[in-house]
Amino acid sequence: MSTPARRRLMRDFKRLQEDPPCGVSAAPTDNNIMLWNAVIFGPEDTPFEDGTFKLTLEFTEEYPNKPPTVRFVSKMFHPNIYADGKICLDILQNRWSPTYDVSAILTSIQSLLDEPNPNSPANSVAAQLYQENKREYEKKVQAIVEQSWAEGPEEDHVL
């Protein structure tokens, strides 16, 4: 079944393959183009370096007029990421534009990792440590980076 949303997602996927962005990777699940798995690699020279963080993106038929629901599957420690993996990012809510695609979403999330906004904390502990005790913050981040390597290799087919 071809709908505008599905056609657009096919094009997003094609673009990702033809012009792969740096440090992110994503693909639709085998039997459902509306559900994607993705991996964001922790940016270099940040506490998140070397992390391989897994996410899911869930699209609706209103895409690209409505943003997908994006969620970290890997455990995260970040001021703007909730305990259940939901992300507090303006372009995924009120500043969404239909011109964004999967690649733009993932690179935005990647840059959010090292540029948190502690003023709208989704994780208040992380926000507090980020502002008041950088060393402790980095230690906690290091812990989840190591955790991300151990998580489910069964999702490796995405890569």
Partner: peptide, 14 residues
């Protein structure tokens, strides 16, 4: 503004 790629809609990419 920088013009979008000519003759392509930046939303549906068609």
């Amino acid at each position: 503004q920088v013009e979008p790629p000519p003759k392509q809609c930046p939303v549906c990419l068609q």
